[in-house]
Write a protein that binds this DNA or RNA. Structure first.
Length: 276
DNA sequence: AAGATGCACAACCGCATTGTG
DNA sequence: ACACAATGCGGTTGTGCATCT
């Protein structure tokens, strides 16, 4: 009754791939395509299971993979897509060109999750934490309605995604799936409600941008530099989005507005280094 | 200088889904 | 409709490197 193992575990190598193995795999796929992953290792002469070969190819060796650190707009996009799609890394990766699901998952688990947490948001739901006491609870904001609206938008996005089309009723002239769809969604009334809801929280965490793009606080750090830091961040944001807008030219205003509306802009205190 | 600690990333594991006979 | 195989996906772990104490 038990599931048959994906491969005969005997005599198979595990652990990190060596350069020779990479070369064998690349050459084989270049020449024959991957075909059946299960039979590939035997045909290519690799002592790996098919699963391992597929993973190595899709996460590392594929020629269209973009390596290097995530840009600010990529990170924003991942956060926004996560709000819509949840932990569906493959679906998120499909909207972030050149990035793999594994990479995005790692980014989320190592950086973005902590960042949302620092911003007072639940990384799972993107909602503000509700651990405040009864006296301070701003229960009046229409959380339930917003969540329902947001969930509705999310479900629609999922449905469209699953159909391979991300466009609304009147398709834009672009043929490719457009990340800007999510930006528009985020910037819509629903997104705005969601953002406003998030914006009610305060945080004293340090900058997500600084912490991700520099190693251990190399961004200058005292509270008196907050304006400078803020300007720097805004400059970087402008730069990021101007390049982003080159690909979808009508999105620049929306994207910039989106970013300016993003919760980090509501309270920039965490941009400051947390050295005390 | 050396050990401890934390972080980032690659890889593995097991379940879910899809395809096929 | 069912069983089985193949593949895809997400969660988790292992490892190497950088930084801290």
């Amino acid at each position: 009754m038990g599931r048959t193992p994906c491969c005969d575990k005997k005599d198979l190598k595990k652990g990190p791939w060596g350069p020779e193995e990479d070369e064998i795999l690349i050459n084989y796929i270049k020449e024959h395509g991957h075909g059946s992953w299960r039979s590939l290792p035997k045909l290519a002469g690799l002592r790996r299971c098919g699963k391992s070969c597929r993973l190595r190819w899709t996460n590392y060796l594929r020629p269209d993979i973009k390596r290097g650190p995530f840009t600010v707009d990529e990170e924003k996009l991942v956060i926004q897509l996560h709000a819509i799609l949840g932990n569906r890394w493959a679906a998120i990766a499909a909207q972030v060109p050149g990035r793999t699901d594994n990479e995005i998952k790692n980014l989320w688990n190592t950086h973005l999750k902590k960042r949302l947490h620092c911003m007072g948001l639940d990384p799972l739901t993107h909602e503000p934490f509700t651990h405040y006491g009864p006296t301070t609870a701003p229960r009046s904001f229409p959380t339930t309605r917003h969540i329902a609206q947001w969930e509705s938008a999310r479900l629609e996005a999922e449905a469209r995604l699953s159909k391979g089309s991300l466009f609304l009723d009147s398709p834009p002239p672009l043929v490719k799936p457009d990340p800007d769809y999510f930006l528009r969604l985020w910037n819509s009334e629903v997104g705005e409600s969601f953002r406003n809801m998030n914006g009610e929280t305060k945080t004293d965490c340090r900058s997500p941008i600084a912490s991700s793009s520099t190693k251990r606080g190399s961004v200058s750090g005292s509270s008196s530099t907050s304006t400078t830091a803020r300007n720097q961040i805004e400059d970087r944001i402008d730069a990021s989005f101007s390049s982003f807008s080159n690909e979808s030219e009508d999105s620049s205003d929306t994207a910039l507005q989106l970013l300016l509306d993003f919760p980090i802009n509501n309270d920039m205190s965490f941009l400051e280094d947390d050295t005390t």
